[in-house]
Amino acid sequence: MNDEELDLIFKALGDATRRRILDLLQERSERSLFEICASFVAADGKSLSRQTISQHLDMLERAGLITTSWKGRTKTHSLNVAPMQMATNQWLKKYL
């Protein structure tokens, strides 16, 4: 894993909304954009725009922290923890 990849991962993790998206996907995988937005409303009644969530999802996907697949004709998002583990082993671990 090179520095660019590490940057993408730590940048993706450096935002509370994106960390919450990861937590939501850990609870249940294969969620659509609509379902992720609804989960935000369910959690605290505050709704974020679909466009905002969509941009966060793009950033998480670029960092490799989520993967997408198709459930029928609907695109779904799932957590991918491997890059986080690699980033931990490669850099963060020496301080833990």
Binding site: S32, F34, E35, A38, S39, V41, A42, G45, S47, K71, G72, T74
Partner: peptide, 19 residues
């Protein structure tokens, strides 16, 4: 009937989504 989303909480409502 196929559901793409099973019943879940969404704030002041509960909802599900079908095809």
């Amino acid at each position: 009937v196929v559901f793409t989303l099973e019943p879940m909480d969404a704030g002041s409502v509960r909802m599900a989504v079908l095809d």
